[in-house]
């Protein structure tokens, strides 16, 4: 399987605070990788560095073989290869659910309005947003609906990989599970995904690989089955603390 994202030795500093200390990661086509780790571990910063929403201070990030961290990189084109789903949804307030999707298709991809509309309807159905909600504005949608529209917006751009930055942390458990089910569904369709989450049940159920992040770097990774045999004490401690949360999220 080809490598879709390769991040090597990524560093990021905010003033005197070091958010990333040489984080590295590899994501292969069709793989679903979940990054877990305590708050402040640098997970969100790392994810935002991958499509250069935050520029790292050091390190090398390649998307589909092209180095996005190079000063010569065509960032706008490379970003289109990465779908990004934010913790706080970040829908465009002035546009309807459909408008949130068609704006990227028409203004970035140059698609005709008719084709963009057709595609928007198709992806909205994929994330289980019914026709009655297509023309609603973000302020008229529930949190779960907003996040599913946000997933559809990213998905519509036909990215090589979807990045999810704690997609359920602003939602209550009921709404979380409807979003997680959509992510699980997309992952099962073979869409390459990198998910930062605190939902351990989801991680064990959906991930091909779980990466444990702490103190600004990925300390260890493995399949869900391998989680019981983590080599480092640091990883085992984090897992022990979190394993109590792994039941019932997608129930």
């Amino acid at each position: 399987m080809k490598v879709v994202i390769k991040a090597e030795n990524v560093w990021k500093k905010y003033g005197s605070t070091i958010a990333l200390r040489g984080a590295s990661l590899e994501l292969r086509e069709g793989e679903t990788k979940v990054i877990i780790g305590p708050s402040g571990a640098g997970k969100s910063t790392f994810l935002k560095c991958l499509n250069l929403l935050i520029r790292p201070d050091e390190g090398r990030i390649c998307i589909d073989g092209e180095e996005i961290t190079s000063l010569k990189a065509d960032i706008i084109r490379l970003r289109q290869k990465i779908g990004f789903v934010f913790q706080e949804f970040n829908l465009f307030h002035h546009l309807t659910a459909v408008g949130n999707i068609t704006i990227g298709l028409t203004k970035v991809k140059g698609m005709s309005k008719e084709d963009a509309l057709e595609k928007a309807k198709r992806v909205l159905k994929m994330v289980h947003i019914g026709e009655d909600l297509w023309n609603k504005y973000p302020a008229q949608l529930s949190g779960g609906q907003k996040q599913r529209v946000a997933i559809a917006r990213a998905l519509a751009m036909d990215p090589l990989v979807m990045l999810y930055d704690e997609p359920t942390s602003a939602l209550d458990p009921g709404l979380s599970s409807e979003v997680l089910l959509v992510i699980k569904d997309l992952s099962e369709r073979g869409i390459t995904s990198l998910v930062v989450t605190h939902e351990m049940g989801f991680a064990y159920e959906v991930a091909d690989t779980i990466a444990i992040m702490n103190n600004g770097r990925i300390i260890e990774e493995g399949s869900p089955e391998e989680m019981e045999y983590m080599k480092t004490k640091e990883a085992r401690n984090i897992l022990n603390r979190w394993n109590g949360m792994k039941n019932g999220v997608l129930a």
């Binding site: 499509n51 706008i76 970003r79 970040n90 203004k107 970035v108 946000a150 917006r153 990213a154 751009m157």
Partner: peptide, 18 residues
């Protein structure tokens, strides 16, 4: 206009002008 929307627009490949 919250910064999150600007990040979202960048994430789908919009230039600053767009």
């Amino acid at each position: 206009v919250d910064y999150g929307q600007i990040l979202a627009a960048r994430s789908i490949g919009m230039s600053n002008r767009k």
